[in-house]
């Protein structure tokens, strides 16, 4: 009970100094720290954890406090978090939407409150929302890089390749689009032909990717390569290739650069990955907030390029065993 009295006392004392003159002028606007509210899809996935951590670090470098919360893939929870950000009057809101469609009324609420909204990794392309800028991986460019790696590894012989897709995700559609364009351009240029003979749904997951790769191998026994749109489905494809005892015949290109994927590259199980840079996303979104606050005009989207990561990179990577 004693503690309660203390709390009440503290409360009353804290109210006291507020009752003085209406105005002075604290000319120093740099004194007060701004606040950035960040609600990410999840923090269980290391990818988003890295984004969150880098937002926090970069924010404190730029004189902001960042409040990073996980929406746990629950759009209603994300909505509540944004409402709380609005009450706190944060200076900017960063979202990676749990659902790019259901997020619309939530972003509209932030718009109505006059708080600038930024997205990171997962864009929202719907009409009727005002987003300052959307920061995401250049998936299209990444797909192109994957195709270059495929052409490079197949060499003069060329051959048949299969794509393990995940069509629900806009990001994966862009990856495959980039991949196809470079392959087509290469084929048009003469020389060795790289032929995309199958495009199967891999669910972005190991088990479904495994089945898809198995089916592709059944249909095309002379398959020479797989492009899988992320690391789990690449690893699933690898398992299918091993089971069919075709590890020497079929090469695999993945995407993402998750720790497990990088490890597989180091062990030679995956040839290469266009890797994403969640660190960059975290840093860039804070820089975008600062630039917006400075009054600069920002592009509607800022794409972070991927980089091809091969065995040589993995061997130099201190983070791998």
């Amino acid at each position: 009970m004693m503690k309660n009295h203390l709390a009440i006392l503290a409360f009353l004392i804290s109210l006291f100094p507020s009752c003085d003159e209406p105005v002075v002028d604290p000319t120093s606007s740099g004194k007060k720290k701004g606040m950035i509210g960040v609600s990410l899809l999840t923090l269980d996935n290391p990818f988003f954890k890295i984004i969150g951590d880098h937002v926090a670090v970069e924010a404190s470098k730029s004189g902001y406090d960042a409040l990073v919360v996980s929406a746990d893939k629950d759009i209603a929870k994300q909505g509540n978090q944004v409402k709380d950000f609005i009450v706190k009057k944060v200076d900017a809101i960063v979202l990676s939407p749990c659902d790019p469609k259901s997020i619309v009324p939530i972003i509209q609420e932030a718009n109505a409150a006059g708080i600038p909204v930024f997205t990171v990794d997962i864009p929202c392309q719907e009409a009727g929302v005002k987003i300052v800028t959307q920061i995401a991986t250049d998936n299209y460019g990444g797909g192109k890089e994957a195709a270059k790696a495929m052409i490079e590894v197949l060499g003069a012989a060329g051959g048949k390749v299969g794509v393990i897709h995940f069509k629900q995700a806009q990001s994966c559609i862009l990856r495959v689009k980039g991949f196809r364009e470079v392959i087509d351009a290469h084929n048009a240029g003469g020389g060795s032909k790289v032929e995309i003979v199958s495009e199967l749904e891999g669910g972005g997951a190991k088990d479904i990717g495994y089945k898809a790769a198995e089916d592709a191998l059944q249909a095309n026994p002379d398959l020479r390569g797989f492009f899988a749109i992320n690391d789990p489905s690449a690893l699933g494809a690898r398992a299918a290739v091993e089971k069919a005892a075709k590890a020497d015949q079929v090469v695999i290109i993945g995407f993402d650069g998750m720790p497990e994927g990088k490890q597989a590259i180091k062990e030679g199980k995956i040839y290469a990955d266009p890797i994403q840079f969640p660190e960059q996303m975290g840093v860039q979104v804070v820089q975008a907030i600062v630039r917006h606050s400075k009054g600069e005009t920002l592009p509607a989207e800022i794409l972070i390029p991927t980089r091809l990561y091969r065995k040589a990179d993995a061997d130099k990577d201190a983070a791998l065993k």
Binding site: D25, T27, S29, G295
Partner: peptide, 24 residues
């Protein structure tokens, strides 16, 4: 709280040194 006012001196030298006044 906007950063546009934080470096007025260097960003807009022509303006002189305006003071920023906020409500208490």
């Amino acid at each position: 709280a906007w950063r546009v006012f934080s470096d007025l001196g260097s960003d807009f030298p022509a303006l002189g040194a305006p003071i920023v006044i906020l409500p208490q």
